[in-house]
């Protein structure tokens, strides 16, 4: 992997092809568990783990898998990995496991995992594939984090509530009351809030992209030259 490759993959996963904002894949868990920052990040990290491992597994076996059973084998690999993660969470992060509930096994059907296995890992060597999986997963995690944080602040007025599920009782003190004496805005925590929040985040991304594009078109040279020189 050259440096540009690494940069490309990271840029794609985190921004340009962000699974949550651009590809709009894996929305079901994204919308369901993003009601608090902790939940959102936890599921995001679980997904990232699965994606990294699945991409890393798919890449080396890709040449041995005949085309007809490509999808079944990929799904099988992902399902195995997810179930393993589920067992581990059940054993070591029980509180979180209860909160995330059905959404951990649902990672199997999260389109983004299969999509990356299919569109990237099945065409690339192990290292870039694993990296791509990780970056895509982190991209998703980032979106989940922003969405979760947003919903938690608007809905409850706090941040990091439920952190004790990850780090035990003593972590209860880490919860940040962003808006003290907040009345609460339930809509943000309920599923419609997730849709509205995601819509706003996508809008924000598009707005940033547009602004960046305008900037580039007005002064193209300095931005593009150094990169070309690097390549």
């Amino acid at each position: 992997m050259t440096l540009t490759e690494i940069k490309d993959i990271a840029y794609n996963g985190l921004w340009k092809q962000n699974p949550g904002l651009v590809q709009l894949l894996g929305l079901c868990p994204l919308l369901a568990v993003s009601n608090t920052l902790v939940n959102a990040v936890s599921l995001g990290l679980a997904t990232t783990l699965v994606m990294t491992l699945s991409s890393a597994t798919v890449a080396p076996v890709r040449s041995y898998v005949p085309n007809e059973i490509r999808i079944p084998v990929f799904v099988l690999i992902i399902a195995v990995l997810v179930t393993v993660v589920q067992y581990l969470m059940n054993a070591y992060l029980y509180g979180l496991y209860i909160v995330l509930g059905i959404f951990v096994p649902l990672i199997v059907t999260n389109c983004i995992v299969l999509a990356r296995a299919e569109s990237f890992a099945s065409k690339n060597p192990v290292l870039p594939s694993a990296f791509d999986g990780m970056m895509m997963g982190l991209g998703l995690t980032a979106v989940l984090a922003v969405l979760g944080g947003l919903r938690e602040i608007v809905g409850k007025g706090t941040l990091l509530s439920g952190i004790d599920l990850l780090f035990g009782e003593q972590a209860k003190a880490w919860v940040i009351p962003v808006i003290p004496d907040y009345h609460g805005f339930l809509l943000a925590i309920l599923p419609p809030g997730a849709f509205i929040g995601l819509g706003l985040i996508i809008a924000a991304k598009n707005w940033l992209d547009l602004r960046a594009a305008k900037k580039v078109s007005s002064q193209p040279a300095p931005e593009t030259l150094p990169e070309a020189a690097q390549g």
């Binding site: 009345h183 609460g184 339930l186 809509l187 943000a188 309920l190 419609p192």
Partner: peptide, 8 residues
């Protein structure tokens, strides 16, 4: 609807 859901 937003109000009745958010501030019942």
């Amino acid at each position: 609807a937003v109000l009745i859901i958010s501030f019942p």
